[in-house]
Design a protein around this nucleic acid. Structure first.
Length: 542
RNA sequence: GCACCCAUAGCUCAAUUGGAUAGAGCAUUUGACUACGGAUCAAAAGGUUGAGGGUUCGAAUCCUUCUGGGUGUACCA
């Protein structure tokens, strides 16, 4: 319907040239009596034309070539809105379109030919993934899905660092546990990783090598074993959420390929850095930041900023049209530095989109569960998946705007009650499938010949929702906001349930019945496609 | 102190990015199946969008000053 309106305006602008300068937009009014779509184009022209917007609106309407079979009525309302009322017989056409595209309905080609890189999770292998990582993982993966639906070719990338201080501490932690199991009287310092998983890794080493590792350094086999085991666990956890990265980028390769040194030299040539107290500092104060920051420590080791910038440069060198970083809010102070670095190296930082999601607060019986990997008093992502299931985890993390602090009430999620929107959607599907099964038994098939019989209020509302699916995906893609898909699907399911209670599919006259079968098949396809984007399964029964 | 984010119905959250009368679910109250799955539907009630000021035809949304929360503010990543 919207596409039709755009065409209508494009033609009208030949007769009414003022329209060419308007950034045209159509909205579905909140109130039904304001029509199916509405535009504020006339109001946007008031300043330019210095005329009453209602007069402008009338002039625009006069320039239209109208087909009464498509648009029944046009009204000017309020301060100058132009409201469009579509012909009810035109609206069911969407059902036919859906039936021909099926799994591809909702896909568009607005970004075909472009490539995107979505970097997410990127946790260093120091411990199991937390619930916070879960939000990150689901957000990144779903954004990637949405981008793919608009035509992007997407790489899902995981950036990690298996060197550095944290990993050293990890190796030491394992060695302490190893010695403890062997009966040595050593204490694990507070500063080290306290989790049970450390003991398990130590036990594995004992099973494999007994006490022969007593004199090995913590940096050697202990660290290596820990990394191997933990990374495998991380990948397993992600896989159980259907999150699969196709690229892994190790920070180490930046050093091996000399990219760190080269970048440092480039910064030097551009006079962006200086030495002080044996360290190398970047002049962030010249870019409005409060302090300059160290990028190479006195020990000669870079801080994370330098490799982060070098890493992002590789993304530019790999020619992505869109570069997305997914971070938790604890990183919100670091990416501006990276952007400054990139900008000074001459890269177009508009290609970089940083998604900062807020923290997840876990509530259990009304109590807040605080989380820290090192102190090990957290709920792991694995535990969460086990408690509530993959579908609920994926849906819950997707359904909120990323900028909102999210409360995840465990006791509530465990209940799996009707408060859970996942079941609401899946129930709609199950109902549709059930009706379709019965239809088959009485030898009724969908027919697209008499769709104009779909004219009750409930049917028309449902049909109009179907039109919006593709558009919602496009908006969700351009804003990187997966929660819009959830909102849309819940609306669609409501529309269906309402239709279901007021309109019988079976047991009415044959032509109407066939048209309604066609309608619910279309609804089923759209719900299924929506759930596919979210990574939630779409069962035929439940 | 400074930076970023948040504040909307009793609770958890939306609001087509500046649009017309701010919407859902839960909880509360009241209705609806001898027929396609009642994990459903209909209706009532619930609001000074944290407070004040500004911008304009029009503000939950933009600017500003407060208040209250979150996250950072390392020669950790």
């Amino acid at each position: 319907m919207k596409k039709y309106l755009y065409n209508l305006f494009a033609k009208a602008s030949e007769k009414y040239p003022g329209l060419k300068n308007v950034s045209l937009s159509f909205e579905v009014p909140k109130v039904e009596s304001f029509g199916d779509y509405s535009t504020n184009a006339a109001m946007l022209l008031t300043k330019e034309l210095k005329k009453n917007p209602r007069i402008i609106a009338q002039e625009i309407i006069d320039a239209f070539e109208l087909d009464k079979n498509v648009i029944e009525k046009i009204e000017i309302a309020g301060p100058g809105f132009i409201n469009f009322f579509f012909n009810p017989a035109y609206i069911p056409g969407i059902v036919k379109e859906i039936s021909s595209k099926v799994d591809n309905f909702g896909k568009s080609d607005i970004n075909t030919g472009k490539t995107a890189n979505v970097e997410f999770v990127s946790a260093n292998p120091t411990g199991p993934l937390t619930v916070g990582h879960g939000r990150n993982a689901i957000l990144g993966d779903t954004v990637a899905n949405i981008l793919e639906w608009t035509g992007y070719k997407v790489d899902r990338e995981y950036y990690f660092n298996n060197a550095g201080r944290q990993m050293r501490v990890l190796g030491e932690s394992v060695k302490y546990r190893y010695l403890q199991i062997l009966g040595d009287d050593v204490e694990l310092p507070d500063t080290h990783y306290q989790g049970e998983y450390i003991k398990e890794i130590a036990q594995e080493l004992i099973d494999e090598k007994q006490d022969s590792l007593r004199d090995e350094t913590a940096e050697g086999i202990f660290k290596a074993k820990a990394e191997e085991v933990i990374f495998k666990d991380i990948k397993n956890t992600l896989e159980s959420l259907n999150v699969i990265h196709n690229l892994f980028y190790n920070e180490d390769s930046l050093y091996k390929e000399g990219k760190i040194k080269a970048l440092l030299k480039a910064f030097g040539d551009k006079n962006l850095i200086y030495e002080k107290d044996g360290a190398v500092w970047f002049k962030f104060t010249e870019f409005g930041k409060e302090n300059d920051k160290v990028i190479v420590k006195a020990t000669g080791e870079p801080t994370y900023r330098l490799p982060d910038i070098a890493y992002h440069i590789t993304k530019f060198e790999r020619n992505y049209d869109l570069i997305i970083d997914v971070f938790g809010s604890d990183h919100n102070d670091t990416y501006p530095d990276v952007k400054i670095g990139l900008q000074e190296m001459g890269y177009d930082i508009n290609k970089v989109k940083v998604l900062i999601h807020q923290f997840v607060t876990i509530l259990e019986d009304g109590e807040i569960v605080k989380m820290s990997t090192r102190k090990a008093n957290y709920i792991t992502l694995d535990q969460l998946i086990e408690e509530v299931g993959k579908d609920v985890v994926r849906y819950f993390f997707n359904m909120r705007d990323i900028s909102s602090h999210m409360n995840f009430d465990l006791s509530l999620a465990k209940k799996q009650s009707d408060e859970n929107p996942v079941f609401y959607l899946q129930y709609a599907l199950a109902r549709i499938c059930s009706v379709l099964n019965l239809a088959e038994k009485v030898i009724l098939a969908p027919s697209y010949e008499h769709l104009d019989l779909l004219k009750t209020n409930e049917e028309q509302q449902l049909l109009k929702l179907l039109y919006k699916f593709e558009e919602e995906i496009e908006i969700a893609a351009s804003l990187c906001e997966p929660h819009r898909i959830c909102n849309y699907l819940e609306n669609l399911a409501t529309g269906f349930h309402r239709f279901y209670t007021f309109c019988r599919v079976l047991g009415v006259e044959k032509e109407l019945s066939e048209a309604r079968i066609a309608l619910i098949i279309a609804v089923k396809i759209v719900i299924k496609n929506g759930l596919t984007i979210l990574g939630v399964s779409a069962p035929d029964r439940m």
